[in-house]
Design a protein around this nucleic acid. Structure first.
Length: 543
DNA sequence: CAGTAG
DNA sequence: AGGCCTTACTG
DNA sequence: GCCT
């Protein structure tokens, strides 16, 4: 019987790395950081190892031009170096052709001083018009936008097209979720929708970047560290782990050595060490230490209570408390904290989608009774199609643009009367009073009709003209929101749940200046379109 | 103002 | 060495 | 924690 080894039948001739085995040193001078990150990821994905110093192991050195190279690396060292010294263009061309191309045409020649480079580059061009003219900037005066001679125009524009195409491909595949779009790429995809990079994708079918799961051993541990550090109040450190997880998840192979991953964004010395320890030992002593430390465990536990953060948790620990039960006798707890404590288990229980569905309907009916035409939607993970939800995020508006004002108070009262809302956490209503441009918010606990199990519920009421922003924000997820905000920033805007504002840079204070009003958009899609962000249906926003 | 949640 | 992510309410 |  033919021994069927495994289900591991990779459909595509697994690019076990076209760069497998090579070891690279990157001269970062003169290359746009964003592009550098993409290249790093690509190199690593394709089997290369990134070295941080020019050592003997290095087989390939990359630089944008001779100047940058010499600026960063000692010339003498280079003369002794025996490997390839190449233009980044080699990388670009190799990636677009799907295989390592010959290094010959991309060599950076150390000996060639400025005068004799000119000739060489001419020779190159004649032999292979498709190849680099990158060494020109050395002596030519930046003629990028004013091509005088037809010949070089052809060559250069072709190369540029390739460049753009490739980086588009990279952007939209591997690193599609780091920085969504730089300003330039974004505007480009607006100008030439569909255009050229489609073809490149076809040319490069070998990128079914296999989804998930490899390296779960690492990301799971890092996930725990995120929570622990957050509980301890070390948000920054926590965030570092948060950022590195997607980077690791994107790798198409199982990490077996920290070398395979060094140089990637967000991975520094400590991350390397941790990863190395995990892949060799299967665990991380640091985490084990945390998990057995009574103080850490207790503070983490206390911090899970709604309204208790790192500071309070630590304070309570130092007062001698060790269990949630003990905490109930503490007088200094705020009302919210007491509620959070009392219904601790309830709140942590996930809500079946069907129940959320029912409660959304209930809310819509109750709202309609009070204010006909009112628009009530359950956002959050429910709107993203999840089968269970942690809480209810209710986003409310009214089409007439004004009668939302004062609605929340009446709505809450009504819901309390019908015994749907049970405990309050936060209730802030601002629209009734003066400014009509503010969002009313209610946080509390509710129950499914006929039951006692407490559910967390948030109600937010938006004026119609900024409703789309509220809906986007409260539908999430976090990653998508962050990408949208970053994109907005890059285009000179500031995005939040209350609107999209022209950047108020030159004028006045940093944030106080709320002078500018938000741009108005009626729907989520209009906001996405305006930002040049591809449309995602709600259920596609689980990034 | 610190602490907290989103 | 210092920034990294914004806003706004509770007590 | 990482990065500039």
């Amino acid at each position: 019987m033919a021994p069927k080894k495994s289900k591991n039948r990779t459909p595509s001739p697994d690019p076990n790395g076209i760069f497998s085995g090579i070891s690279v040193y990157l001269v970062e001078k003169g290359v746009q950081n964003r592009r550098l990150q993409v290249w790093k990821q690509k190199l690593v994905q394709m089997g290369a190892t990134i070295e941080e110093r020019l050592s003997k192991k290095v087989s390939h050195v990359f630089a944008v031009d001779l100047n940058s190279l010499l600026q960063q690396v000692d010339r003498e060292r280079l003369t002794r170096y025996k490997g390839f010294i190449l233009l980044y263009q080699w990388l670009v061309d190799s990636l677009s052709s799907g295989e390592k191309v010959s290094e010959d045409l991309y060599l950076l020649n150390l000996d060639s001083e400025e005068d004799n480079i000119a000739d060489k580059s001419l020779d190159w061009k004649q032999e292979n018009e498709n190849v680099s003219s990158d060494c020109e900037p050395l002596h030519h005066k930046r003629i990028k936008s004013s091509h005088e001679d037809v010949e070089s125009f052809k060559v250069e524009s072709k190369r540029d097209a390739d460049n753009n195409a490739v980086s588009e491909t990279l952007n939209s595949s591997i690193s599609s979720d780091n920085l969504p779009d730089s300003p330039s790429t974004a505007s480009m995809s607006l100008d030439t929708p569909g255009g050229q990079f489609k073809d490149v994708n076809v040319l490069q079918p070998s990128l079914p970047y296999s989804p998930p799961d490899l390296n779960k051993n690492i990301t799971e541990i890092f996930g725990k560290l995120i929570n622990i550090y957050r509980a301890l109040g070390e948000d920054r450190r926590s965030f570092s782990y948060y950022k590195v997880i997607p980077v690791i998840e994107k790798l198409p192979f199982k990490i077996e050595s920290a070398d395979q991953v060094k140089g990637l964004p967000g991975i520094g010395k400590s991350m390397q060490d941790h990863i190395q320890e995990i892949v060799t030992n299967g665990n991380l002593s640091k985490l084990e230490h945390f998990e057995t430390d009574e103080k850490v465990r207790t503070i983490s536990l206390f911090g899970e209570v709604w309204g208790i953060g790192p500071a309070t948790a630590q304070k309570l620990y130092e007062k001698g408390y060790r269990t949630l039960d003990d905490l109930k006798s503490e007088d200094s707890l705020t009302h919210s904290q007491r509620v959070g404590l009392k219904y601790f288990d309830d709140i942590k229980t996930r809500i079946p989608r069907q129940e959320v569905q029912d409660m959304e309907l209930l809310l819509q009916k109750a709202g309609e009774d009070i204010l006909p035409g009112v628009d009530i939607v359950c956002g959050g993970s429910f709107r993203r199609g999840k089968s269970s939800c942690g809480d209810l995020d209710i986003v409310i508006t009214h089409p007439d643009g004004k009668s939302h004002k004062g609605f929340l108070s009446r709505f809450v009262k009504r819901l309390k009367d019908m015994n749907f809302l049970r405990e309050d956490l936060i209730f802030s209503t601002h629209s009734e009073e003066d400014s009509d441009s503010c969002v009313d918010t209610y946080f509390g606990l509710c129950t499914y009709p006929g039951r006692e199990l407490r559910r967390r519920i948030d109600l937010k009421v938006y004026p119609r003209d900024i409703y789309a922003f509220g809906l986007i924000h409260w539908t999430g997820n976090d990653v998508l929101n962050r990408r949208l905000r970053l994109l907005a920033d890059s285009k000179g805007y500031r995005l939040d749940d209350t609107g999209l504002f022209p950047a108020t840079h030159g004028s006045g204070g940093k944030k106080g200046a709320k002078a500018s009003t938000s741009l108005k958009f009626g729907t989520e899609k209009e906001v996405f379109d305006f930002l040049g962000f591809p449309w995602f249906e709600p259920h596609e926003r689980n990034l």
